[in-house]
Design a protein around this nucleic acid. Structure first.
Lengths: 226, 226
DNA sequence: TCTTAATGTTACAGAAATATTACAAATTAA
DNA sequence: TTAATTTGTAATATTTCTGTAACATTAAGA
C-alpha cells in the first residue's frame, strides 16, 4: 500500500509537476497553495508525509512546521522542506524546527522522490514497500517477479508494468487513456485497442486453473483489479 | 565485528542521514558539527575511519587532515572527504594531503557506504566482511578469489567487480546504468551494451556443467543474481 | 430479436532487446 | 621488449516482445 502525501507550495507549476509524478508512482496526493488553508486541509487529509515550501505568501514554512509539531496527532508527521537556493543558511534552523529533510529548488523529480522514499522508509516502512500484494497475487518491484498463490509467473515488460499499475490502486477502474498515459512511456502513440490485447495477455498469464478471474472489464469505462 | 566511524560535518541533515544509516549497518558512529571540537572528540573516540567535510565553519577539512596526520596515533586513520560540487579542482590537493577517498555532495547513502567499505577493506580488513557467499558461490575480497562449489574460478578484474557487485545484493535486479555507475570507475564512458558482453563472460566463467544458471536476464530491466 | 458498439481472441510481421562472436586497442606480465 | 591477457565495440545472430489488423463474441438498447 502506497501512502498519502500532502503538498503546501505556492508555485502552481511545482505542485502540478510533483503531484502528477507522485500519483504516477501510486501515492495519493493532495495539495494547497497557501499556508493557512493548507494546515486545515492537511489535518483532514491525514497524510503520511508533508512537502512544505519554505516561503509562503501568508505563513512561513517554519510556522506551519511548529504548528504541526504542537498538534499531538501530527507530532511525528514526516516533513520535507522545499527551500530555494540562497536560503541555505536557514537550513539548520529548519532542521531544528523538526524538519526531516529538505530539498533545494530547483530539484529533479527523481531527487525529490528518492528523499521522500528515504524519509518514509525510516518513519513508515510499509508505505514504500517493494512488494505489492493483492489477494494471492504478489509483485516484487526489486526482484521483478510476480507470484500467484506462491507460484511464479513470467510476464513480459509491458504486462509487468500493467500489473504493477493495477496493484498500486486495486479495485479502481481505469480508462484506456489513463492506462496508456501511465503504463506506456511518454510520447508513445499506441492504438487504444492495443490495451485490450495486453489485458488479454496479462489475464492469460495470471489466471490459474480454478482460481477466480482477477481483472474485471467495466464496459464503456475500462478495467480494474478485483 | 563492525568498526567505529566518526563524522565531522556541519550540515545536521547530512550527519543525521549518514549516522542513522551507518548505525543500521552495524557501525558505531559518533559525530561533531565543527572542526575543533570534532578533533578532540575524535581522538577520544578512536574511530576506524573518519568522514570529513571539506568546508567547515571554523577549520578547513585540510587543516583537520594535517593535524590528524601529525598525530602519531592517527597517522594512518583512513579519511573520506565530503566535498561539494565545484570544489572538484581541489580534489587532487585533498588527496595529496592524505585523504583516502572523497565523495561529492550530493551523494546517495549507498555510494558513500560503498566507498567506506572499500577504504576499510584496504586499511582494516577485519572490520568489514570480506567473504561474500551466495548459494555455492563464494568470493573472497581480500584474496581476490572466487569459488563455485569449492572449485576455484579465474575471473578478469572487471568480471570480478561485476560479480562482487551482484553478490552485495543478490536477487535484486539492476539496470545497465546502475551497473555501470557502480562497477566501472567514475567518469568512464562505456557503451551500455558492453555490459552484455561482460555478463556473457561472467556467465561463461561461473557456470559449471550441470549446475543452474546464476545470472538472470530481466528483459527491459537488467540482470540479477539468482 | 435485431442491431450496433464494445470487447475478446488470434495470428503475424516488424521492432526491440539480448546473446554471441570476432577483433583491434589497451593494459599487464614476463 | 615481447607475449599474454583484458577491454570495449561493432557486426551479426537469436530471441522475445509489441502493436495492429482481422475476425469472433458479447452486452445492451431499440
Amino acid at each position: 500500500m502506497k501512502g498519502k502525501i500532502f503538498i503546501i507550495e505556492d508555485e502552481a507549476s511545482i505542485v502540478q509537476l510533483v503531484q502528477h509524478n507522485l500519483e504516477k508512482e501510486g501515492f495519493v496526493v493532495s495539495s494547497s497553495l497557501n499556508g493557512n488553508e493548507g494546515l486545515k486541509e492537511l489535518k483532514k487529509f491525514e497524510p503520511n508525509l508533508l512537502l512544505l515550501d519554505w516561503m509562503l505568501p501568508d505563513l512561513s514554512g517554519i510556522d506551519i512546521c511548529k504548528n504541526i509539531r504542537r498538534d499531538s496527532n501530527f507530532k511525528s508527521l514526516p516533513i520535507i522542506m522545499l527551500t530555494a537556493k540562497g536560503e541555505e543558511e536557514d537550513k539548520v534552523k529548519g532542521l531544528e524546527s523538526g524538519v526531516d529533510d529538505y530539498v533545494t529548488k530547483p530539484f529533479s523529480f527523481n531527487e525529490l522522490s528518492a528523499r521522500i522514499k528515504a524519509v518514509l522508509r525510516r518513519s513508515d516502512p510499509k508505505v514504500v514497500a517493494n512488494e505489492l500484494i493483492f489477494d494471492d497475487l504478489k509483485l516484487d518491484r526489486i526482484e521483478k517477479r510476480v507470484f500467484r498463490s506462491d507460484k511464479e509467473i513470467q510476464l513480459g515488460p509491458t504486462e509487468f508494468r500493467l500489473l504493477e499499475f493495477f496493484l498500486t490502486n486495486p479495485k479502481r477502474v481505469y480508462s484506456r487513456d489513463q492506462i496508456l498515459e501511465t503504463v506506456w512511456p511518454n510520447n508513445v502513440n499506441v492504438e487504444s485497442r492495443t490495451i485490450d490485447v495486453h489485458i488479454r495477455r496479462l489475464r492469460q498469464s495470471i489466471n490459474i486453473e480454478g482460481k477466480k478471474e482477477l481483472i474485471r472489464t467495466v464496459r464503456a469505462s475500462g478495467y480494474s483489479l478485483v
